[in-house]
Every structure is written in structure tokens, then in C-alpha cells.
């Protein structure tokens, strides 16, 4: 059962008491790549004669801003670092297995759990800041106080679902491709890999949208109650 390791972090090296897993190293690399691309693309910005690369970056940022504006109904400047970085990081992670030998960090519950926890705490802190502590707590009594346990349960399950959905999808696709490669190594896995591209993009989009919906709902700009 060599595949057992795919659920647990593979420790690459240890810094003092801290074990550094493979997904953390991959994340560093991905961070370096993303920041490098951003730095390279924004080196020479021009308002009148943008380079091709700048146009692509502007399209990406514009897409994220539109997404935030549409889903949250709020001005995108405040949430762009959180929501935009979520999307870019998850997309990069999901597409990273296309490079041979790279294991996507989002296939590990640690990574998606970190993202889910960040969203969780953002939701509650913003909700408290927006409505005050009592006002925010009162939203758990809606529509009636009977719903209080359901609402509290929903808070945790939806965060849990958020992180497990992403990790499960990516991990299952990794496993599927691995199994197919084990059955027939040549050419056959290619459709599955193409499908994994689609799944990776869609899952990143869904994670971002859901995070935006949760935050917007806590702020009261939109009204949703999702599990």
C-alpha cells in the first residue's frame, strides 16, 4: 500500500521540531512562481501602451474584481487580496500536476484546511465587525431560535465541506490518473488529465465563489444560507 502516503503529508525535511511537508515546499515554489510572474508582468506598466503580458494580468484581475462585485455586491478593493489570491493559488495548485512529478498541495487536507479556516475566521470577524457582536450572534437565531443548533452546525459543516470538496476532488483525480497509468501507461491517461484540468479550474472557481458568498452573507450584502 504505497498509496497510503498520498493522504498523509510526506515530510521532506525537518527544521528543529517543525516537519516541513512536501505540500509546503510545493506551495513555496508556487508562491515564488506566482510572485515572479506578477513582478515580471508589473515591472513596466503603461496606461496607454500596455504590453501583452500586462493585458493578460489586467484581464485576470478584472475577472476577479467582477466576480467579487457580482457575488458579494461590494467594492472589490478590500476583498481582492483574499478572494483573488484564493483563486489564483488554488488554480495554480490544481494545474501543477500537469508538470510531471509535482503533487498538488490542494490534494492534501492540510492545505485546503488552512484555506477553509482562513475563510471561516474571515467570515466571523467580518460579520462581527459589520453588525456588532450581538447583531451577528442574533443572525444565528433566524428565522427562529429553533434553528440555532442547525445554524451553528451549518457553520462548521459548510467549512468542512469547503475544504473536503476541494481536497477530495483533486486527490481523487490524482488517484484516478495513477490507477489508469497503472493499468495502461501510454496515451490512455491523457483524457483523464484533460478532465483534471477542467475539474481543477471548476473547483478553484467554486471554492472562490463559495468563499465570497459566505463572506458576503456574513456581511449582510447578500442573503444565503448554504451548508
Amino acid at each position: 500500500m504505497t498509496e497510503r502516503a498520498s493522504l498523509n503529508a510526506l515530510v521532506v525535511f525537518q527544521v528543529g521540531p517543525i516537519p516541513i511537508g512536501l505540500e509546503v515546499v510545493t506551495t513555496w515554489v508556487i508562491m515564488a512562481v506566482l510572485v515572479g510572474i506578477a513582478w515580471f508582468g508589473t515591472r513596466r506598466l503603461s496606461a496607454t501602451q500596455p504590453s501583452r503580458f500586462q493585458i493578460i494580468l489586467e484581464m485576470v484581475v478584472g475577472f476577479l474584481e467582477d466576480l467579487i462585485r457580482d457575488v458579494m455586491g461590494a467594492e472589490p478593493e478590500v476583498f481582492l487580496p483574499l478572494i483573488g489570491t484564493l483563486f489564483l493559488y488554488i488554480v495554480t495548485c490544481n494545474l501543477s500536476p500537469l508538470i510531471p512529478g509535482v503533487k498538488p498541495p490542494t490534494a492534501h487536507v492540510e492545505t485546503t484546511g488552512a484555506l477553509g479556516l482562513i475563510v471561516f475566521f474571515t467570515v466571523h470577524s467580518l460579520g462581527v465587525r459589520q453588525r456588532g457582536l450581538l447583531g451577528y450572534l442574533r443572525t444565528y437565531l433566524e428565522p427562529t431560535f429553533i434553528f440555532l443548533p442547525l445554524n451553528i452546525l451549518g457553520e462548521f459543516t459548510r467549512t468542512f465541506a469547503l475544504m473536503v470538496r476541494l481536497a477530495g476532488n483533486i486527490m481523487s483525480h490524482e488517484l484516478t490518473i495513477a490507477v489508469v497509468i497503472g493499468l495502461a501507461g501510454l496515451f490512455v491517461p491523457i483524457p483523464f488529465m484533460a478532465l483534471s484540468i477542467l475539474v481543477g479550474l471548476v473547483q478553484a472557481y467554486i471554492f472562490t465563489i463559495l468563499a465570497a458568498v459566505f463572506i458576503g452573507g456574513a456581511m449582510g450584502t447578500i442573503n444565503t444560507n448554504t451548508p
Binding site: V35, E110, A114, L115
Partner: peptide
């Protein structure tokens, strides 16, 4: 790993 990834994400958000 969870803590490291969270820190990584925060750093990435700031850098981006």
C-alpha cells in the same frame, strides 16, 4: 502543515 500553509497563504496574499 496546516499552520505553515495558512502562513504561506497569508504571505502570498500580501505579496500578490
Amino acid at each position: 502543515g496546516l499552520a505553515l500553509q495558512a502562513i504561506n497563504f497569508a504571505v502570498l496574499a500580501w505579496l500578490l
